[in-house]
């Protein structure tokens, strides 16, 4: 019996660390995405951009492995049976955000969009807001495991930032379609802006679910 309990605590501690590492990956991917797009805007598809893209892909790959490991452990070790489904959903939602960071950055790599200089600063703003949004989502999610009282604070920041991204992307697209660019170029830029902005929407969706899980977690 004693051995069983020690084992249970050791298993919990190991999984705690995996979940923490997974949250680190969300923040890493957000920062790397920011770096990647800044590099693209500054130097196009440079070697440095390719290197950053590769690093982002690695982060996404590591996060996938961590997610699978967390899911496996939760079920095979029968941990938190009452909250297991919620934790799995949460981890999957966060993973979706990481995947999108990787996919959007890769889209830049593949499509090599031609972005006029006048839009650079606003795209940088948008990327900044989206990455901030994802980072706050990650902190809110981390708080869910340790300090429920903080979840709402960070959730509020996510909602605020998501709204900001809506405004920024709206203004950006307006300005793109008001320009003299070729329609195909306009459509490509607009799609890319949408893709970036959608990451904030994903973060918001994941926060919506997180707030419900938080109510459930309260005793």
């Amino acid at each position: 019996m004693f051995h069983m309990k020690i084992n249970l605590f050791a298993k919990a501690k190991a999984l705690e660390s995996k979940i923490d590492m997974f949250h680190d990956k969300v923040i890493d991917s957000a920062m790397m995405f920011n770096k990647s797009l800044r590099e693209y805007l500054n130097a196009g598809r440079s070697d440095e951009f390719k290197k950053i893209n590769k690093q982002l892909r690695q982060i996404e790959h590591d996060a996938d492995q961590l997610r699978r490991d967390i899911e496996n452990r939760l079920y095979s070790q029968n941990l938190i049976p009452d909250m297991r489904a919620n934790v799995l959903e949460l981890v999957e939602n966060l993973d979706r955000v990481i995947n999108r960071f990787d996919e959007v950055s890769y889209q830049f790599y593949i499509e090599r969009p031609d972005i006029p200089q006048i839009y650079h600063s606003r795209i940088k703003d948008l990327v900044e807001q989206v990455t901030d949004c994802a980072e706050n989502m990650s902190i809110a999610s981390r708080s869910f495991f340790r300090d429920l009282s903080l979840v709402r604070d960070y959730a509020q920041k996510v909602y605020f930032l998501e709204h900001e991204t809506d405004l920024t992307s709206g203004r950006l697209k307006e300005s793109i379609f008001d320009s003299d660019l070729h329609l195909s170029n306009k459509l490509q830029l607009s799609t890319i802006v949408d893709e970036i902005e959608n990451i904030a929407d994903l973060a918001e969706d994941s926060i919506d679910r997180l707030l419900i899980f938080t109510i459930k977690r309260d005793i």
Partner: peptide
């Protein structure tokens, strides 16, 4: 317990182990 949980900032998984014990 509610007060203790609020201030101890115990991880969900560790809380689960304590609850099981």
């Amino acid at each position: 317990i509610k007060h203790w949980l609020k201030h101890s900032k115990i991880h969900l998984l560790r809380q689960d182990s304590y609850v099981r014990t």
